[in-house]
Amino acid sequence: MSLEVIVVGQEAAAEVLAVVRAAFAARPVLDPPADALSETEASIAALLAPGGGLLARLDGRTVGAVVLDPDGDALYLRRFGVDPSAQGRGIARALVRAALAEAGRRDGLKRLVILAREELPLTVQFWRDMGFAETARQPPYVEMARPVPRTVEIPTADAMRSLGEHLASVLQAGDVLVLSGELGAGKTTFTQGLGAGLDVRGSITSPTFVIARVHPSLSGGPSLVHVDAYRLGGTAELDDLDLDTDLDQAVTVVEWGSGLAEGLADGWLEVRIGRATGDAGATGIDPEADPRIVELDPVGVRWLGVELPASSTL
């Protein structure tokens, strides 16, 4: 199975319309009816004019579409749909991920917004599963939004520490950070910067052998809880850690925590660290000098409006 998602403009109005008609016609009858059912090729072209859209193609066949509608610092997802014949193959998730990536490439966009029908609870749950949170409700619509990820290029270990230190300035008690990246990617170096920015006590090293360490604040701010989830068997074991601190009063950083630590809070910040070369075993590359690409992916209402660090600030 070959799946690709491409950015399109008004020239793709007919393809977008075909997906919209197929997707919305298969949904339950709503009152009032969905506006999408009255779209024409001309009206779709007009919707595509400001910000374009995305098409998903499965083995060369167009099976998914969404219109991207920029409005201030928000990118609205309009006429989001997947052809019923292709449902269950990850098309909708691929479209959302592509929309997030596209928003990250456009200047000034900070959030993705979707208007879901409250009569369709499974649809609303899908958006929650994709990291969207309810921000407003005007029946029959539920407005849901999620922040746009930010990608930062980190050329040196000092810059990685600086990223952590800058990020610390926007953190508050109760925040959860989930770190991922191969061994040696820079997760602990990043956390050392966080510790410096939060002004906590103690040397921050990899917590592998003790699973978790608590670093109290030296200045009345939140403590830093540094957890290595690599050897934990599940969320229950994470909850059972005897940390001698209230996580609501601390900033919690969980290495190797993807899919595990998110239950600690309603919102969290994914910090994904990768090598710029894409090949940790490449010959002739100094692993200490190999630049890193860090993706800061915030999830939840807590992060809407939070200014995350950019490469230019480091």
Rank of each mutant, 00 (worst) to 15 (best):
T277E: 11
S219P: 00
A159Q: 06
R146Y: 00
P84D: 07
S203M: 04
E295N: 03
L37F: 05
S162M: 11
L100M: 07
V227K: 00
G281V: 01
R231P: 01
G9D: 03
T245V: 10
L48N: 00
L171H: 10
T205L: 12
S180D: 11
V210A: 14
R302W: 07
L48G: 01
P155T: 04
G88M: 06
V19C: 00
E4M: 08
L304D: 10
V176M: 12
L122G: 14
Y76H: 10
L177R: 10
A86H: 00
D266M: 02
E119Q: 05
L167V: 14
S203V: 13
L218N: 15
V251Q: 10
P298Y: 10
R201V: 10
E41N: 11
D158W: 06
S311K: 13
W268M: 14
E41R: 06
A136V: 03
G284F: 00
A94M: 09
R231M: 09
E237D: 11
S217M: 01
P121C: 14
M144F: 01
S2P: 07
E4Q: 09
A65P: 02
P33K: 15
V176G: 09
G9W: 03
L163P: 07
D107A: 12
M1Q: 10
G221P: 07
L3R: 13
A136L: 01
A196M: 09
A14R: 09
V306W: 09
L95A: 02
L167Y: 05
S85E: 06
R93K: 15
A23T: 01
T283R: 15
A173T: 13
H226I: 05
V5P: 15
L264S: 12
H226E: 08
G108Q: 14
R275K: 12
A103E: 12
E4H: 07
R57W: 04
P121F: 06
W256D: 09
G186C: 11
I204E: 02
T123Y: 14
A212S: 11
P298F: 08
A23S: 13
R21E: 13
A173K: 08
V299Q: 11
G267I: 05
L47S: 08
L171C: 15
G278V: 05
L112W: 04
M130R: 02
L100V: 07
V96H: 09
A18G: 10
S180W: 15
F80E: 03
D286A: 03
H215S: 04
A46Q: 11
G88C: 04
R128L: 15
L194P: 03
V66L: 05
I154L: 04
D158C: 03
D244Q: 08
Y141I: 09
P309F: 12
L238G: 10
L247N: 13
I273Q: 07
P309L: 09
T191D: 03
